[in-house]
């Protein structure tokens, strides 16, 4: 810190700015009073109890879990296989394939969201929960491919060749050598996909109707009406999930890899 007085000072101030909404939401959820304020008026967990009783919020949370599960269940196999294929085989149209697979990142969310809404509308899939999970998988798939690709690239192909020369067939090599070696990447990708689907707001908003709102949409609708502490309690659940996800990700791949130059 002593060598970087200015940059370090700015960084710490920004850290506070980045953390402020999460900290304030968590603090406000502990209030014993009837209105949202920070610092809270006396400490209590009563608003958490209120959330457990509130049917709308609980159902929305369960729907969000379903969305995240569907999204992850689809993303793990499709993303893993694609990453392995792209890293291990030579494709003639490799550049075109990569640009195509990056489309979910280059097309803005409002574009993909409206497109999927119209498509699912034609297919008669609107008003159900699982298509939202598929949509979340579509828009975030590059994260999954990216996470697995990082692991595959770190895996020495000699290991697979060694397995083959020891008499293992292609299936055995894939299941017993390749997959375990890229498992941290798969887990990291699955984690990111799950948490992002749990959080997905805009695409959810476009795809759900009044009977199938997911939790972010429920929070959005409620803050537009009236702000009550039970919403802060729900939001705190998100903060805790996020914290757990960051810690897990750090354990799995180490956050420092994001500082490495490509």
């Amino acid at each position: 810190m002593r060598q970087l007085p200015l940059a370090g000072g700015v960084a710490l101030a920004l850290l506070l700015l980045l953390a402020a909404p999460s900290l304030v939401v968590a603090g406000a959820s502990l209030t014993a009073g009837g209105i949202v304020q920070f610092p809270p008026e006396g400490l209590s967990l009563r608003w958490y109890g209120r959330v457990l009783e509130a049917r709308e919020v609980r159902d929305a949370f369960l729907r969000s879990l379903e969305v995240a599960t569907v999204c992850t269940a689809l993303a793990v196999p499709s993303g893993t296989l694609a990453a392995i294929a792209l890293a291990r085989w030579r494709f003639r149209a490799a550049l075109a394939i990569q640009l195509y697979l990056l489309l979910p990142f280059t097309v803005p969310l409002i574009g993909s969201g409206i497109g999927l809404m119209l498509l699912f509308g034609e297919l008669g899939l609107l008003g159900r929960v699982w298509p939202v999970g598929i949509a979340c998988c579509v828009i975030n798939l590059p994260f999954m491919i990216w996470a697995v690709a990082a692991s595959v690239n770190a895996l020495d192909p000699e290991l697979e060749r060694a397995a083959a020369s020891c008499g293992a067939g292609p299936v055995q090599t894939f299941l017993l050598v390749t997959l375990p070696a890229v498992a941290p990447g798969i887990l990291a990708g699955a984690l990111v996909m799950f948490v992002l689907a749990l959080n997905e707001f805009l695409v959810s908003l476009l795809l759900v109707d009044a009977r199938t709102v997911t939790l972010p949409v429920q929070i959005y609708t409620q803050i537009r009406a009236v702000i009550t502490p039970d919403l802060a309690a729900v939001s705190t659940v998100y903060v805790l999930v996020a914290a757990a996800a960051v810690l897990l990700l750090d354990r799995l791949v180490g956050l420092e890899i994001f500082l490495r130059s490509r």
Binding site: A19, P216, I219, I227
Partner: peptide
């Protein structure tokens, strides 16, 4: 952390 917290919750924090 903010990346995983999601936009709605962060906007809610700013409302508070």
């Amino acid at each position: 952390l903010p990346f995983f917290v999601g936009q709605v919750v962060r906007a809610y924090g700013w409302l508070v």
